[in-house]
């Protein structure tokens, strides 16, 4: 897999000959060592938690995070070391999150109204709340635009990868991204 196209360096794809710092623990965990797996959990919790919260909102997020790590434990034998463990875990997490979101689809219809939810938010604040304000604005994006924005601009995936994950055309991923950015711009300039 090649690095993301936008230069967002949040994904660390395994380069040939590069040592994966998690290799030993991943191997031990795949052999049933729960302590090694706990170390992996603690190493990657922040990133997986951030991904889940941005993709899901706060609702059910803790459950989803637990599901991600339980699924990872169950799937460790399929980790072939072709990418870094963190990259493998991240892709697995996205699959779990997207699966959970499908089951929540009905509850989330309210976000499908486009930019109306974002319009209801208070305008931009000055620091130090600005980062959380930005997080809140992301959470209020329409579902499709939020998924693409998080995966592309926050997590660093390319449109081709996002299109494959979400079952979209690449052009749709691009248009959703632009839509998300413009919606955030309208919110943040207020």
């Amino acid at each position: 897999m090649t690095p993301p196209g936008t230069g967002v360096a949040t994904l660390e794809h395994q380069a040939p000959g590069r040592t994966d710092p998690d290799a030993v623990d991943a191997t031990l965990a795949a052999s049933g060592d729960a302590h090694a797996f706990e170390r992996l959990y603690r190493t990657h919790l922040g990133r997986i938690s951030g991904l889940a919260r941005r993709m899901m909102g706060d609702e059910d997020t803790d459950d989803v995070i637990q599901d991600v790590f339980v699924r990872a434990w169950q799937k460790l034998a399929t980790f072939r070391g072709e990418s870094a463990f963190g990259t493998w875990l991240h892709r697995l997490a996205i699959n779990v999150i997207l699966g959970r979101r499908e089951t929540l689809g009905i509850r989330r219809q309210r976000h499908l109204d486009g930019d109306t939810a974002l319009e209801a938010l208070p305008g931009r604040r000055t620091t130090p709340e600005i980062s959380m304000d930005f997080e809140t604005a992301i959470e209020q994006l329409p579902d499709g635009a939020r998924q693409v924005f998080v995966l592309h601009d926050v997590e660093g995936y390319r449109h081709e990868e996002i299109a494959e994950m979400l079952g979209l055309a690449t052009g749709t991923s691009k248009s959703q991204l632009h839509r998300a950015r413009m919606a955030l711009r309208r919110h943040l300039e207020r």
Binding site: F69, F134, D153
Partner: peptide, 29 residues
Amino acid sequence: DLKRIVARARGLEDRLPERDLWPGIAARI
């Protein structure tokens, strides 16, 4: 503006859960 938004997205930090989720995971595995 779009550049600023992208830069801000790239700079977002990891977010830890408010509680330790390991006990629940450990129980399930």
